[in-house]
């Protein structure tokens, strides 16, 4: 049984990347773009594109934002379930976060996250220096671009939150690319803040 699986894997490896099926990056980009415009368009009336540059974008589109985040949550849960079939975790929060930084991130972005910081009291900050989904919005552009980039980012927040939940570490996840001190965009760098929910 084990040798058959190994043989299958090496056959797949010979055909390309080791054991993994791949698709073009563009497919995911297009899918996210289309899902985003579907969710944003559905709630607003047609032709209401100007509200994308609104300052209160986040209030106007709170339901689309929640829906995109929950789409990410769903994918994060399922992907983590699949990844964990072959991996045992101890149940420590730090280990769950490390799993997201390494295994999970590699699965989705083919690289590890660049930097992980923690205060050892349930808050973790993950820094990704080149977040490829938002590369096209970088750097400082119009407010519409800023809003759309932030919107797309909510899918990634959902992914991380879903992964944490599946690893039995319920948490809140926020992400931003705005540096409050200098009031400038940090794109394509993005940081995620994970806060464990107190049990």
């Amino acid at each position: 049984m084990a040798s058959a699986a190994a043989a299958a894997q090496s056959a797949a490896g010979a055909a390309g990347a080791p054991g993994k099926r791949l698709v073009n990056d563009v497919c995911v980009d297009m899918l996210l773009l289309e899902a985003s415009s579907y969710l944003l368009g559905r709630r607003g009336k047609p032709g209401e594109a100007e509200d994308l540059e609104a300052e209160n974008f986040r209030e106007l589109h709170h339901s689309a934002i929640a829906r995109l985040e929950s789409l990410g949550w769903d994918v994060g849960c399922r992907l983590t379930e699949r990844l964990c079939q072959t991996k045992l975790l101890s149940g420590e929060p730090l280990e769950a976060v490390k799993f997201i930084c390494k295994d999970f991130w590699t699965e989705v972005f083919r690289k590890q996250i660049d930097k992980l910081q923690t205060d050892h009291r349930g808050t973790f900050v993950l820094r990704e220096l080149n977040f490829k989904w938002l590369a096209k919005y970088a750097p400082d552009k119009s407010r519409t671009d800023r809003n759309l980039a932030w919107f797309t980012l909510q899918f990634a927040c959902g992914l991380v939150r879903g992964a944490m939940a599946t690893l039995n570490q319920p948490a809140t996840v926020k992400a931003d690319f705005w540096d409050e001190k200098t009031d400038r965009s940090l794109l394509p760098a993005v940081s995620f803040t994970i806060r464990l929910k107190q049990a």
């Binding site: 990056d25 995911v28 994918v75």
Partner: peptide, 9 residues
């Protein structure tokens, strides 16, 4: 092409 995991897609 730059590629991504098909499962995730």
């Amino acid at each position: 092409m730059s590629k991504v995991n098909a499962e995730f897609f």
